[in-house]
Each structure stands twice: as structure tokens, then as C-alpha cells.
């Protein structure tokens, strides 16, 4: 697979600049070396964001869950564990955007790509159950369950861009989750 692909709606430039934003760059190896750092980071960033919400406690749970899932995936599937993974957050007032960007090997990208096609076309509840049944016998960590729950349970808009890199078989994978700020506040 050598062409760029986009799943979902991946609008390039935002219409207006974000009210609030941050970007964190990680070395995946740091999180592989101490796995709990994924959760620690997700909690911290979720606190940072949720602090300004009306119901910080509820928002925290959703935000930390979403950030942790994106971060775990980016770290697990990054092709080179010494190359940075970027996690960015943008708050546009009504919507919140959380995005990770990392490189993936060709084989993993291909499996991810076909999973995303299913995610875009099949009934989400059916897919959730199908993935559980299918994964019951294996210990594969790439079940996609995290992304399914993001769409299914957190009403997020999921968009993924896959772009082959100029050298080697690795691809740049951007996973973007857009949440409704009011829903997060009342979650």
C-alpha cells in the first residue's frame, strides 16, 4: 500500500484558531520502559483540560479514557520506538480535538487500514461484538476495541490519515478524535 488514505472527515485547517491548545512529544520507548506512564500522562492531561469544565469529574473520566487509548495505540504501534510520537490537543469552544501522530510499519498500517474500512461501513455495535468474539482466542493487542468504543460510546468523530513516508515501508499515521465539549462536560 503506497498511497495516502483518509478515513472519516479529516479537515485540514480549522476554520478558527483554537481557544486553547497544547502539544506533547513523547519517545515511545519511555512509555514502553514504564507502561504506567501512559495512564499517568493521560490523567495529567485530562486534569489539565477538565479543570476548566463545569463538571470536571465527569469530563475527566471521558478525557482520560480517550487520551489513554490514543496514547497506548500510538506507543504500541509506532514503528521506531525512539522516534517521537506527538499528542496534540485543541479546544475550539464547542469541540475538542485530540490527535496522535506516529509512524507505523507497512504490515500494521495495512491491518489498521482494513479495520478502519470496517469501522466506517459496519454497524458499530455489531462490530464491537464481532471484534470481541474474534479476539477471544488470540492475544493480539491490535483489537481496535479502543477506537470502536471511542466512536460508539464517546460519540466522537474519528478521522485517520495514513501517508506513506518517502523512505522505507513505514507510514505516518494521524488519528484524530473530535469530541463535543458539552457532551464531555455532561458525560
Amino acid at each position: 500500500m503506497s498511497i495516502s488514505r483518509i478515513h472519516g472527515v479529516f479537515d485540514g485547517a480549522a476554520v478558527e484558531p483554537p481557544l486553547s491548545k497544547f502539544e506533547v512529544k513523547f519517545t515511545p520507548l519511555d512509555l514502553i520502559a514504564h507502561w504506567k506512564r501512559c495512564g499517568m500522562t493521560a490523567d495529567f492531561l485530562a486534569y489539565f483540560i477538565a479543570y476548566a469544565f463545569e463538571n470536571p469529574k465527569a469530563a475527566l473520566n471521558t478525557l482520560s479514557t480517550v487520551i489513554n487509548e490514543l496514547l497506548e495505540n500510538a506507543v504500541k504501534f509506532s514503528a521506531n520506538k525512539r522516534e517521537p510520537v506527538v499528542l496534540s490537543f485543541d479546544h475550539f469552544g464547542d469541540t475538542i480535538r485530540i490527535e496522535t501522530c506516529n509512524t507505523c510499519s507497512g504490515a500494521i498500517t495495512q491491518r489498521f487500514d482494513s479495520f478502519l474500512q470496517r469501522l466506517g461501513s459496519e454497524d458499530i455495535e455489531d462490530l464491537f461484538i464481532a471484534q470481541i468474539e474474534q479476539n477471544a482466542a488470540t492475544n493480539r493487542s491490535e483489537s481496535g476495541l479502543g477506537l470502536i468504543t471511542m466512536v460508539k460510546d464517546h460519540n466522537s468523530n474519528l478521522a485517520v490519515s495514513i501517508r506513506p513516508l518517502e523512505v522505507g515501508d513505514a507510514h505516518e499515521v494521524r488519528v484524530r478524535v473530535t469530541l463535543n465539549a458539552n457532551e464531555v462536560d455532561q458525560s
Binding site: L29, I32, A33, H34, W35, K81, R82
Partner: peptide
Amino acid sequence: AQYLIVDMYHQNYGILFS
């Protein structure tokens, strides 16, 4: 030293350390 070990063990055997 830890990071070389972690990197290679994770890549080759899927092993994590704690």
C-alpha cells in the same frame, strides 16, 4: 542500558519491564 534492553526485548519478544 535499560533502554537498549527494553527496546530489543520489546521488539524481539514483545516483553515489557517493570
